[in-house]
Amino acid sequence: MAAIASDHGHGHGHDEALHHQFENMEQQNDSYIVGMWTFLVTEVMFFGALFLIYTLYRSMYQMDFFLAHEALNVQMGMINTFVLLFSSFTVAMSVRYAQLQKRGGVLAMLGITQVCALAFMVVKYFEYQEKFGHHLYPGPGFGSHPEYLHGATPNFAQLYFGLYFGMTGLHGLHVVIGMIVIGYLMAKWWRNSPMVTKDYIPTELVGLYWHFVDLVWIFLFPLMYLMPKP
């Protein structure tokens, strides 16, 4: 029934970056890209469910969400958005350098990305700290200083801050994971590992992930920080 292909030598030894289950680099690269996109689809659904919850509650309690959101610091949000958009650019550049096999460029760009990510987390830290200080973290002590609620009904404001901490927290977790992965990638580049230098795909995959993190923030920012007055 099935004939045997005669010319298929096993990939070993031909290409250091080629895994045994693949026939050639093209197949391997395609597989990784498709795999990453499939994973990103799951991430879209993952955050999507949270956005759905947010949409529902915000439509139910428009005024309270608006009043509660005034407690957020728009400047900090803006800065963070700038930082993330810029880091998306540097990651895209690092992919470009990886394609051109320019090790120095890749390392520089990934380094800047790391700095951006760190800056993002530091700003987040100060934001969170402020909210905690103002007793805006949901739970028993919530709203014990009503002046920070800006007149929102405490219960509904609590819903808002529950979503705020839940969604930005999960997003922040993704940023941290991104930092770890980028750090790992940088180490690989630093050590001239053929896994990354011979093949730009690992860099590309990390880039895709990082852009997704950016994408989530693009929606989080206007939804959390910039509500129009109802």
Binding site: S88, F89, V91, A92, H211, D214, L215
Partner: peptide, 10 residues
């Protein structure tokens, strides 16, 4: 988002 997906994400 579209610009990020279309260009940055290639």
């Amino acid at each position: 988002a579209v610009f990020v997906i279309w260009i940055f994400m290639g």
